[in-house]
Design a protein around this nucleic acid. Structure first.
Lengths: 125, 125
DNA sequence: CAGCAGCATCGATCCGCCTGCATATCAGCA
DNA sequence: TGCTGATATGCAGGCGGATCGATGCTGCTG
C-alpha cells in the first residue's frame, strides 16, 4: 500500500463525497479507505490517544512502547503508517523523534464521514 | 473477527473516549478499530454510498453487484460485515433482501472521532 | 574518538481477509 | 410438488499486514 501518503490532503482538496448524495467514485473510495485503514487498528488508535494526551501533546517512541506493550520496531512501524496517512507529524530533536497529531486531520475524516446535511451544500459538480 | 456485531451499540452506550482527553483503553480501542475496519474497505464504502443514494434509501443485492463489479457472493459478504458492524440493517421482503443505512450509525462514528471540545462534556467517569 | 542510546529499516513468520467458484437455502410460482 | 431465481454460506487461493529479532544509523557524551 503506497497510495496512502498525502491521501488526506488529496481528499480534502477535491471535496470528495463519502456518504453524501451521489455514489462515491472508486478512486475516492480507495483513498478514504486508505486513511481509514490507518485508523482501523487498536494499536494505532491507542497511539493517537496517548500522543494527544501527552504533556505537550507530543511523545517520543520510547514513551509509547511500554504503554502499548509492543516492541520498539512495531511501534515505529505504526507511527510511520499514521504519519504517512497524514494523521501524525514527526519532529526529530537530537536523538529523539517526537510525534504529535496533525491539528485537524482526524476532524477532517470525521467531516468526510458525516452526512451532507451538516457539510457544505455541494453545488457545482 | 467476531467481536464486531453490536460493536457500535456497545461503544455509544458506555461513552468511550476515542481521541478525547485520557488514553483510550485497549478494549475500547479494539471495538472502535473493529467498526473502522468495516469501513476501511473501498468496496464497502461504495456499498454504503450506493445504498444511501438509492431511490428509497434502500437496495437489494442484485442492484449492487453490477456497480461494484464484484460477484454476488462477495457483495453479500461485504453487506454482512457492514450489517454486523451495525452500519446496515437488513430486511427481507419475499425473495429480495433490502439493505439500508442504520440512521445515525456513521454519524456516531464521526462523533467518536471528533475531539472532545465538540462532544458531550465528559463529566462522571 | 569510542561507546552508547534512541529510532528506523530489513527479513521472516504468522494471521486475517478479500475474492470467486461451487453449493446450500429459501420464497414464489406453475 | 417441482422448478426457478435471489441470497447466503463453505471452501480455498493469494495478498496484505502485524509483529519481532537483528541490524544499521545517527547524535550525545565521556
Amino acid at each position: 500500500m503506497d497510495y496512502v501518503g498525502t491521501a488526506l490532503a488529496e481528499m480534502t482538496m477535491p471535496q470528495i463525497s463519502p456518504l453524501a448524495g451521489e455514489p462515491i467514485e472508486r478512486a475516492d473510495a480507495e483513498r478514504l479507505a486508505g486513511v481509514l485503514k490507518a485508523l482501523a487498528d487498536p494499536a494505532r488508535l491507542r497511539l493517537l490517544s496517548l500522543i494527544q494526551s501527552a504533556p505537550e501533546g507530543e511523545a517520543c517512541v520510547c514513551d509509547l512502547t511500554a504503554p502499548l506493550g509492543l516492541s520498539q520496531p512495531t511501534v515505529s512501524h505504526h507511527l510511520r503508517i499514521l504519519t504517512e496517512a497524514g494523521l501524525l507529524e514527526r519532529e526529530k530533536r537530537g536523538v529523539w523523534a517526537y510525534y504529535r497529531l496533525v491539528p485537524s486531520a482526524i476532524a477532517t475524516i470525521a467531516d468526510l464521514l458525516t452526512p451532507p446535511r451538516k457539510r457544505a451544500t455541494k453545488k457545482a459538480r
